[in-house]
Simulated assay, not measured.
Amino acid sequence: MNVPLTKRFNHIPLSVLDLAPINEGSNPGQSFKNSVELAQHVENWGFNRFWLAEHHNMPGIASSATSVIIGHIAGATKEIRVGSGGVMLPNHATLVIAEQFGTLETLYSGRIDLGLGRAPGSDQATAYALRRTLNMRVDDFPAQVEELQEYFEGSPDARVRAVPGEGLEIPIWLLGSSGFSAQLSAQKGLPFSFASHFAPDYTIPALNLYRDNFKPSTTLQEPYAMLGVNIIAADTDDEAKWLATSQQQQFLGIRRGDPTKLKPPIDNIEELYSAAELAAVEKTLASGTTIVGGPETVKQKLASFIEETQADEIIVNTQIYDPKARLRSYEIVADMMK
C-alpha cells in the first residue's frame, strides 16, 4: 500500500549529487571551494547525503579523483554522509577501491557511502587510458562487486587483504541508468540508486525490476530506491528558466561531442542551437525528472514525481553557473520539504 503523499513528501530524505562543475572562466580549485561551501550549507539545511560522481576527460567536471574529493568534503563537514555517486568500478582494481574507501571510513566513521557504477564515465579512448585494456565485459561487473564485498568482509586465510577496509561496514549501493544494476541490486539485496535525471524513460521499468525481484539480505530487508532529479529552483519561474540554460548548454555540448565548462545563462538559446538539438535535450531533460521553476512549481512537480515513483529518497543534481544561485536553489528545496 502506498504511503499518503503528504506524509511521504514531508519525510522523504533529500540528498545532493555534486558534479563539482568547473565554470567557464574558472578552474578546478574554485570548483572544490564551491563544493565545500555547498556541502556545509546543505548539511545545515538537513540534507542526508552528499555524493560525488566519477567522470573523466570532461573539462567541466572536477571530480575525477572521486575518493580524494570525498575525503576533502568529509573533512570540511561534520555529520552529513559523503560518498560516490558513483565510482565506476570497471576503471579500478577492486582492492584499490576497498583500501581507499576503507581509509575514508576509518577517518570518517559511519559517514561514508560507496556507490558503484559499471559505465566507464568517459569515452572509449579515456577508458583505455584508465584500464589499459577494453576486455572488460558487462558480465564481469557482478564478479567485481562480489570481490569487493569479500575484501570488506575479510578472511584470516585470504592471501590478499584490504587494510584498511577489512571488517568495516561500508554501505554499498549499485547505480544504474537501465535494468542491469536494478536486477543485480535486487539479487544481492542492496540499495539501488537510479539515474532518472538523465534516463527518465527507464525509471519506472527499472524500479519495477528492482522491487519485484528484491531478495532480503543481511544488508537490507526491504528494497530501498534513491532517484536522481535535476532541480533548478529560484524565486520565480522566469529566473529559474534562465538559470537552466546553463545546464541545457552543457547537455547540448555533450550531444555535439564537444563537452565544455559550465557556461553562464543566456537569453537566446533558441538562436544558438537547432530545433532538433533542443528537442533532443528536452527529451533527455524530461519534465518529470528535470524540474525548473519557482518554489510552488518545484513543489508541485516534485510531489508528482514522488507520488509516481514512490521513491524512498531523492538525490538532487543542480547545475547552476552562479554558486550563490546554486545555494539558493538547494535552500528553496530544503524549505519546501520541511
Rank of each mutant, 00 (worst) to 15 (best):
M1H: 09
L17M: 14
L19N: 13
N23Y: 10
N23S: 12
E24I: 12
S26I: 06
L52V: 02
N57E: 01
V68M: 07
I73M: 01
I73H: 03
A76C: 11
T77D: 07
T77R: 08
K78F: 08
E79Q: 15
G85N: 13
L95H: 11
I97M: 09
E99D: 14
T103D: 09
E105P: 11
L107V: 11
S109K: 15
S109R: 14
R111D: 10
R111A: 11
D113L: 02
G117K: 03
R118P: 05
A119H: 04
A125H: 14
L130T: 05
R131W: 03
R132I: 09
T133S: 15
T133G: 11
L134M: 14
V160A: 14
A162G: 15
P171S: 07
I172V: 15
L174I: 14
G179P: 00
K188C: 03
F192R: 02
S193Y: 10
D201E: 15
P205R: 07
R211Q: 01
T219W: 12
Y224A: 15
V229Q: 02
D235R: 15
D238L: 12
K241V: 05
W242Q: 11
G253R: 05
K261V: 10
I269S: 10
E270T: 14
A279L: 10
A280F: 12
V281Y: 02
E282V: 04
V292T: 11
E296F: 10
K301N: 13
K301S: 10
D322W: 03
A325C: 11
L327H: 08
E331V: 06
M337R: 12
